[in-house]
Amino acid sequence: MSARGSTATAGRNWTVGLRTWVQGLVPSGQALPDRQPVYVASWIYVFGVLSLASFVVVLASGLVLTVGGSLWWHTSSLGHFVNSMHLWSVELFFATMVIHLWGKFWMAAWRGERALTWVTGVLLFVSSIGTAFTGYLSESDFTSQWIAAEGKDGINAIGVGAFFNILNPAQMLLWHVALLPLAVGALVVWHVILVRRHGVVPPLEASAPEPARVGE
């Protein structure tokens, strides 16, 4: 009964409004369910979780790198190892993400109101590329010099270089460690919420499940 009462005042009370919105994001019981539809039985489903896991390794190794400062990995063998971990976790992140992307493509996983899940996935792919690019510019080694010298023409040609100066490593490093990872992280959260909200997409051409099962 009290729940009804809250809903009635939702229009006026901002807190109730926010609570209702948050509660409606994922249907109750579906945030962390311990059961999945029978058809969720393929290795391809693991790649979303693997992307997520490697993203966590990327973030963790990146955070350790920030502790030592922006030149640490050139002067310390520990720093260099953490730098190597950061690089390889990024390679794994992209590898698993691309397999995930193609898996979802061949499963046409955007069906049944899941288009936004696909769209946020593509945004993730693109923003991850941007984040990795600023990472290469922050290496402060020969690769950074060359990528900056080569890449500037592309960015300048579309007028963006005037604001996003890839020859300025201080600007690039800050983008790389603040705004861009925050954006990717926020997109990941949104993406995963959408996945849980809609449930795993049923197989293509699946026949309607037996009515007996419905409401079981």
Partner: peptide, 9 residues
């Protein structure tokens, strides 16, 4: 019907 209508494991 959608994912929620299928039997689960």
């Amino acid at each position: 019907w959608d994912s929620h209508d299928f039997p689960t494991r």
